[in-house]
Design a protein around this nucleic acid. Structure first.
Length: 502
RNA sequence: GGCGCUUUCAUCUAAUGGUUAGGAUACAUGCCUCUCACGCAUGGUAUACGAGUUCGAUUCUCGUAGGCGCUACCA
């Protein structure tokens, strides 16, 4: 039994899509649970779509998420180089092999000629039926082809596909998928223009040379997997096992999850924030939006797979232990923003509070407030169960630093009834006489006092709360007075009695 | 258009040739309680449709419909 080796092989054309993150996560889980290797390969065979910084971005994203590679670009290994643009000579050799064996041929058709052919023939496909009338080494003859190449004419190498054969792909998730070779066109394997192969050739050669045992990728690759099978066969290589993962779908409506959906529904579709180097457009990222990596990983893992029992909250190690690729669902999964938030809320409760402190400090600074970490930590601990994202903290707890200027209409209607002003005024007088302002002691005193008056606790306390907070919300009231201190608490309460009774 | 994949609550999903079709999120209600939130409890909502096989189908087969993907000198 060979060692399990899988790879994640993105194209550096921009920020990594969250769907790609999930694909990589599944590869990682699969590799880890089998004691195998995860390889990081860069598929930059399309020189025209290369985006600077994308590779670094992808690396940083996985580092943040806690997904570790064993081998590949920036990780080393003895099967490199791991950047396809650095493997030109390797691909040339294998393209030559196919050419020599008559399993591939040179084609000289220009993009314009191909365009014309498509226009002329509906559903034009470069294949057994049409290659005979195109400009290629089959119609021109090999000598003429060689002459054209020597004369510097641009060409591509196409894979010669024999029609009428059923190719069976044995998918670990879907079982046997049968596709007839007639529907495949003579795929371009290599282009002389940039001396690079296309994805199809590079991916087969690399997977073979890097001894990849399992190809776990998105469902969009399923239709071209028979082509890949045929390529393995043409080289006489053993093909790896395949698993085609269901796609991530937009939260509503049609299609797969796209960048637009993120804008539309207000959630990130990228792990990290990305600034487009050309347009300067900024796309939000999970990290910068305040999502915790554990939450993102946990949520993503469950989008298309589940452990078979009722467990949902799982650590990376638990995911590794229970992951089962054959248990993946076959149908596309809609991205549920609400559940993502729920996971984040959950992990926020047990995360390092310094994360919350930092987030809140940033907003305090932005509002010109200087505060010690210790006091901010006190509030963060009080407020975290009320938020899904750290950035919601400030709007939820700004009243700790800013006395209310306006009062929530609904809260007033419910709690600021006729007797309210006199309750609060009397309470203020009582509080004025208290020397021990610590929350715990104050609470007992106040409760006693309210009881002695035979007033309803709720009516008094909520009226008081509204004067302090500006609304009927927030944590335990003596936690608030504790933080505000005697002077500020009384100032707020008295002022509110004044303004609200006018 | 062609080819392929797919179809269980609103969403992610579990399960089985015989179950009251389970869980989670969301939603609603109740409890807790000085409010909000948390937590706890409860509740409603699902096997796309039509045939066939079978004593029995949500499960197996076929068809229909819907969804999705691919159909480039992109990956």
């Amino acid at each position: 039994m060979n060692k399990v080796r899988v790879r994640f092989a993105p194209s550096p054309t921009g920020p990594l899509h969250i769907g790609g993150v999930r694909t990589c996560l599944y590869n990682y889980l699969f590799a880890r649970q089998h004691g195998g290797d995860l390889i990081f390969r860069i598929e930059d065979t399309d020189s025209s779509r290369f985006v600077a910084g994308a590779e670094q971005y992808i690396l940083e994203a996985f580092d943040w998420l806690g997904i570790k590679f064993d081998e590949g670009v920036s990780f080393g290994g003895d099967k490199g180089p791991y950047r396809q643009s650095e493997r030109r000579e390797i691909y040339k050799k294998y393209v030559g092999e196919l050419l020599d064996a008559g399993k591939a041929y040179y084609a000289f058709d220009t993009p314009e000629e191909l365009e014309a052919a498509r226009k002329e023939t509906p559903n034009f496909q470069y294949d057994a039926r049409t290659r005979g009338r195109m400009r290629n080494s089959l119609t021109l003859g090999l000598d003429e082809a060689k002459r054209l190449i020597a004369a510097g004419e641009k060409y591509v190498v196409r894979f010669l596909i024999d029609p009428g054969e059923d190719v069976v792909v044995n998918d670990m998730i879907r079982g046997e998928v049968k596709i007839n070779s007639s529907i495949l066109d003579d795929k371009v394997l290599y282009k002389s223009a940039d001396e690079l192969p296309t994805y199809h050739l590079a991916n087969i050669v690399d997977d073979h040379l890097m001894e990849v045992t399992h190809v776990i990728r998105g469902e969009e690759w399923l239709p071209s997997s028979p082509l890949h099978m045929l390529l393995y066969r043409a080289f006489g290589w053993e093909d790896p096992r395949f698993a085609h993962l269901p796609l991530l779908l937009a939260p509503e409506g049609n299609g797969k999850l796209s960048k637009r959906d993120g804008d539309k529904y207000g959630f990130p579709v990228f792990p990290l924030e990305w600034k487009d180097p050309k347009t300067g457009t900024i796309s939000s990222g999970y990290r910068e939006s305040g999502y915790l990596p554990e939450a993102v990983v946990n949520f993503l893992a469950l989008l298309g797979w589940n452990p078979g029992d009722d467990n949902e909250v799982m650590t990376m190690q638990q995911l590794i232990d229970t992951f089962n690729i054959e248990h993946c669902s076959k149908n596309g999964a809609r991205f549920d923003v609400k559940k993502m938030l729920w996971f984040n809320h959950h992990y926020l409760q047990e995360c390092d509070e310094q994360i919350l402190v930092n987030a809140l400090q940033a907003d305090l600074k932005a509002n010109g407030i200087a505060e010690t970490d210790a006091r901010v930590r006190q509030i963060a601990g009080l407020m975290k169960e009320r938020v899904n994202l750290p950035k919601e903290l400030w709007e939820q707890c700004a009243f700790f630093w800013q006395a209310p200027e306006e009062f929530d209409a609904k809260s007033l209607k419910k709690w600021w009834k006729d007797e309210a002003p006199q309750y609060v005024a009397a309470l203020c007088d009582f509080l004025e006489s208290q020397d021990d302002w610590r929350g715990e002691t104050l609470e007992g005193k106040v409760m006693e006092w309210i009881a002695s008056k035979e007033w309803a606790v709720g009516k008094v306390m909520n009226a008081f709360r509204v004067t302090l907070v500006g609304a009927a919300r927030g944590p335990q009231i003596f936690a608030i007075t504790d933080f505000l201190g005697k002077e500020e608490s009384l100032r707020r309460a008295r002022k509110a009695v004044e303004t609200l009774s006018v």
